[in-house]
C-alpha cells in the first residue's frame, strides 16, 4: 500500500518556536505547515494525507484547548500534541482527557516530540484506513435492497433460515436466496466476518 506524504501542522504564536519546529521536522524529512493562530489554521485547506497537529496551548485569540474542543465537536479526529511554556497540570489533564496524544512542556527534548509526532501520524494513518474501510462497507451496504437489509439484520442476530422465513413471512428458499445475495454484495467470506462488518457499520451509524 503506497502512503501519501504525511503533514505536521504547527500552530504557535512564537515565530522562533515555529521556525525551530519547521527546521526539526524538515531534518527528519517531515513536511511542516506553520500557523500563528488557530483562526489562520481553520481558514486553510486540509490536505488529504496523514496529519497531526502540534498545538501551543496559549495563543492569541482562540486557545489551543478551545481548538481541540471545536475539532472534536466537528467530528474531526486529527491527533493533537500540545506544547506549552506554562507547566500547568490541570491544563494538561484536561487536554489528555480530551484525547490529546501528548502534552509537552517547553523546552522539550526533540526526540520526545518526534516520537509523539510519529505516534500521532501512525494513529491518523490507522484512522484513515479504518475510515476508508468503513466507507467501502457503507458503499456495499447501500447496494442492499430493503428486504436484504432486514435479512442481514436477522442473520447477524444469529437466526436460522427457517426462523428468518417465519419472521418475515416468506419461504425458506427465498430467505436462503436473500442471504446469499447479502453475503455476495457485502463480500463477506462467512458469518463471522458479516457480524464484524455489521458491528463496524453499527458503530459508524450510532456515531454519525
Amino acid at each position: 500500500m503506497t502512503e501519501e506524504q504525511p503533514a505536521v501542522v504547527v500552530i504557535d504564536d512564537d515565530p522562533s518556536v515555529r521556525k525551530a519546529l519547521d527546521r526539526l521536522l524538515r531534518s527528519v524529512g517531515l513536511e511542516a505547515r506553520l500557523f500563528a493562530s488557530t483562526e489562520e489554521f481553520l481558514a486553510s485547506e486540509l490536505t488529504d494525507s496523514p496529519t497531526c497537529i502540534v498545538l501551543d496551548v496559549r495563543l492569541p485569540g482562540e486557545s489551543g484547548l478551545a481548538l481541540q474542543r471545536d475539532l472534536a465537536a466537528a467530528n474531526n479526529r486529527l491527533p493533537i500534541i500540545f506544547i506549552t511554556a506554562y507547566g500547568d497540570i490541570p491544563m494538561s489533564v484536561q487536554a489528555m482527557k480530551a484525547g490529546a496524544v501528548e502534552f509537552l512542556a517547553k523546552p522539550f527534548r526533540d526526540q520526545e516530540l518526534l516520537d509523539a509526532i510519529h505516534l500521532a501520524l501512525e494513529k491518523d494513518r490507522a484512522r484513515r484506513a479504518e475510515d476508508r474501510e468503513k466507507a467501502q462497507l457503507r458503499e456495499r451496504f447501500d447496494t442492499l435492497t430493503a428486504r436484504e437489509r432486514e435479512v442481514m439484520a436477522l442473520v447477524v442476530a444469529g437466526r436460522l433460515n427457517k426462523q428468518i422465513a417465519a419472521e418475515l413471512g416468506i419461504s425458506e428458499t427465498t430467505a436462503k436466496i436473500h442471504r446469499g445475495q447479502v453475503m455476495r454484495k457485502m463480500r463477506a467470506a462467512g458469518l463471522v466476518e458479516l457480524v464484524r462488518m455489521a458491528d463496524q457499520l453499527g458503530a459508524a451509524e450510532s456515531k454519525s
Binding site: 525551530a20 527546521r23 531534518s27 517547553k106 526533540d110
Partner: peptide, 12 residues
C-alpha cells in the same frame, strides 16, 4: 519560549 526554540533548533 526561546529555550524551546533553542533546544528544538539544536536537535535539528
Amino acid at each position: 519560549q526561546p529555550l524551546a526554540a533553542i533546544v528544538t533548533s539544536g536537535g535539528a
